[in-house]
């Protein structure tokens, strides 16, 4: 029923004995106390608010058991900014007003994290990359603008800077 696991989240190891049915999103929120990862639809993994980066890939944390992430590395919204500096993707949303209520924003940023590492993208590709997170406020236009802003920022980074921002 219970199992001892360790998950590295934003570079810090969290060890806990958990119910085997515990969802990864609840490990992140309840065990690690990182409540920036949100729970929206809570059933079928449709809304994407719980998206995190697991071993480099964007996944919905409500569709994984925490025990499946034993030994894995997870990046959440709390791991994006460095000291006082916003991550380029956060900065894009700040500059272009890519959010209203903000509930979907953490999931959206984590869904775009992998995508932005190779920033040459068409408008169509931007929209596809966003398609796994539902926003009920913005109508998405400002989000697309925010992603374009972030792409421009990432493209202007030196290789070293890029590595720093995308080194989980």
């Amino acid at each position: 029923m219970k199992r001892s696991i360790g998950i590295t989240i934003n570079g810090e190891v969290y060890e806990e004995t958990v119910d085997q049915r515990l969802l990864l999103v609840d490990f992140i929120r309840e065990v690690a106390g990182l409540t920036g990862t949100h729970v929206g639809c809570s059933v079928e993994g449709r809304c994407g608010a719980c998206t995190v980066v697991l071993n480099g890939k964007a996944v919905k944390a409500c569709l994984l058991l925490a025990v499946q992430a034993d030994g894995a590395s997870v990046l959440t919204i709390e791991g994006l900014a460095r000291d006082d500096a916003l991550h380029p993707i956060q900065d894009g949303f700040w500059e272009k007003h890519g959010l209203q209520c903000g509930f979907c924003t953490p999931g959206l940023l984590m869904a775009l994290y992998e995508f932005l590492q190779n920033p040459k993208h068409s408008d169509e590709e931007i929209r596809t990359a966003m398609s796994g997170v539902i926003c009920r406020c913005t109508g998405y236009v400002h989000i697309v603008e925010a992603v374009k802003h972030a792409i421009a920022t990432v493209e202007a980074l030196s290789p070293q800077e890029r590595k720093e921002w995308f080194n989980e």
Binding site: T51, A58, K60, A111, A129
Partner: peptide
């Protein structure tokens, strides 16, 4: 199929 996160899993 689905969306990028679903296609990753």
């Amino acid at each position: 199929i689905g969306d990028p996160q679903i296609r990753n899993r």
